[in-house]
């Protein structure tokens, strides 16, 4: 962990519990920092994106890593400006691939160097980012109109003989 060197100083007082160590990492040093953990035998546990745009104009990314042998959770907190892409760590941890796709579709946060940044859970072509705090309801056009049409009348069901 010491190899990580100096991280950024905490941009906000927002306590983190449930981890042996939680540290702020600058977006530019994320790949390097996660590689240190990968080599130290940590596994990828989770990644969370938190919308803090209204208060700070940023997304807070929380990565947690853990070890099998002696559990000690390390949390990376990244203060990511909403408009700049965050470096992808999918080359270091395979699990980051899906997690980053999820953050992209839910928040519109881009990741640079991601091999396949496309929709994961939402239907392909979804144009809104539902987990943003500014999201209220999907646009009406996101419904597939052909589905709401009534089924063809007697065609699907041959007439009964009465």
């Amino acid at each position: 962990m010491d190899a990580l060197g100096a991280s950024v100083s905490a941009p906000t007082e927002h306590p983190f519990s449930g981890a042996a160590e939680a540290r702020w990492v600058a977006p530019g040093r994320l790949v390097e920092a996660s590689r240190v953990l990968r080599e130290a035998g940590y596994f990828f546990e989770s990644m969370t994106c938190v919308d803090r745009i209204a208060a700070h104009g940023v997304f807070e990314l929380i990565y947690t890593f853990n070890r099998w042998e002696a559990a000690s959770r390390v949390a990376f907190r990244v203060w990511a400006p909403a408009t700049e892409p965050v470096p992808s760590i999918s080359g270091v941890f395979g699990a980051a691939n899906w997690n980053e796709r999820e953050a992209w579709e839910f928040y519109g946060l881009a990741f640079s160097g991601h091999p396949n940044l496309t929709w994961l859970l939402l239907p392909e072509g979804t144009e809104f980012h539902p987990l943003l705090k500014s999201f209220t309801a999907p646009p009406a056009s996101s419904y597939d109109d052909s589905l709401t049409a009534p089924p063809p009348p007697d065609d699907a069901h041959p007439p009964a003989h009465h």
Partner: peptide
């Protein structure tokens, strides 16, 4: 719930 984005509200929207 108001504003939900993920589900289709009932099967009768698209089939009998």
């Amino acid at each position: 719930y108001p504003g939900e984005y993920a589900i289709s509200e009932g099967a009768e929207k698209f089939m009998p």
